[in-house]
Amino acid sequence: MLVISNRLTIPSNELEFQAIRASGPGGQHVNKTSTAITLIFDYRRSPTLPDSYKQGLDKMANANITAGGKIIIKAQQHRSQEMNRQDALNRLQSLLLQANVRPKTRHATKPTRSSVRKRLDTKSKHSKTKQLRRTPPKD
């Protein structure tokens, strides 16, 4: 079972774990043991995941999310299978928490009178400086 928040937990029967051989350095240990973990979670078919999370995941641009609606996380940093399993679960939890974050809505504001006055004063001062740099007209 994966606890996302106080109200949301994902049962372990919706999570699929596959033990595979890790790549990279490690010598004979890496070549003989299947310590890397691939976690697959089909969020579109999940009955426990709320629609707000599903919509957030659909909008996210993440390499771990496939077009078919699956999250695939490969964890191979640790030497033990159990630590890689926990790492994959932690990464899934953080991804789901990111998907549920709603951006703040922007409220249009009006500039203050003093800021408008300062901006116009600066513009007129700059304009006068530019005018003084011009060559005088020939009469």
Rank of each mutant, 00 (worst) to 15 (best):
M1S: 02
M1G: 00
I4L: 01
R7V: 04
R7P: 00
L8W: 09
L8R: 05
I10T: 05
I10G: 02
I10D: 01
P11Q: 04
E14K: 01
E14Q: 12
L15S: 01
L15Y: 04
F17E: 02
F17Q: 07
F17C: 06
I20L: 07
R21W: 12
R21M: 08
A22I: 05
A22R: 08
S23R: 10
S23M: 00
S23C: 03
P25H: 01
Q28N: 09
H29M: 07
V30Y: 01
K32M: 11
K32W: 02
K32V: 09
K32T: 12
K32G: 01
T33D: 00
T33Q: 02
S34T: 07
T35W: 01
T35K: 02
T35V: 05
I37Q: 07
I37E: 01
I40C: 12
I40T: 15
F41H: 05
D42Q: 08
Y43L: 03
R45H: 06
R45S: 09
P47R: 05
P47W: 00
L49V: 08
P50T: 09
P50F: 08
D51L: 11
S52T: 09
Q55R: 15
G56H: 12
K59Y: 10
M60T: 13
M60Y: 12
A63Y: 14
A63E: 14
N64M: 09
I65S: 10
I65T: 14
A67R: 14
G69V: 14
K70C: 10
I72Q: 13
I72E: 09
K74E: 06
K74Q: 12
Q76P: 06
Q77W: 08
H78L: 09
H78E: 13
R79P: 15
R79W: 06
R79H: 14
N84R: 01
Q86D: 10
D87V: 00
D87Q: 10
R91K: 08
L92N: 02
L92H: 06
S94V: 12
S94Q: 13
L96E: 00
Q98N: 14
Q98A: 12
V101Q: 12
V101H: 12
R102A: 15
P103M: 11
P103N: 10
K104N: 11
R106E: 13
R106A: 08
H107K: 11
H107D: 07
A108D: 06
A108H: 14
T109P: 11
K110S: 08
P111L: 05
P111Y: 13
T112E: 04
T112H: 09
R113E: 02
R113W: 05
S114D: 15
S115L: 00
S115V: 07
V116G: 08
L120E: 14
D121G: 06
S124K: 15
S124Y: 08
K125V: 07
K125G: 11
H126Y: 03
H126V: 09
H126A: 15
S127N: 14
K128Q: 15
Q131V: 11
L132S: 15
L132I: 13
R133K: 14
R134L: 15
R134V: 07
T135P: 02
P136S: 07
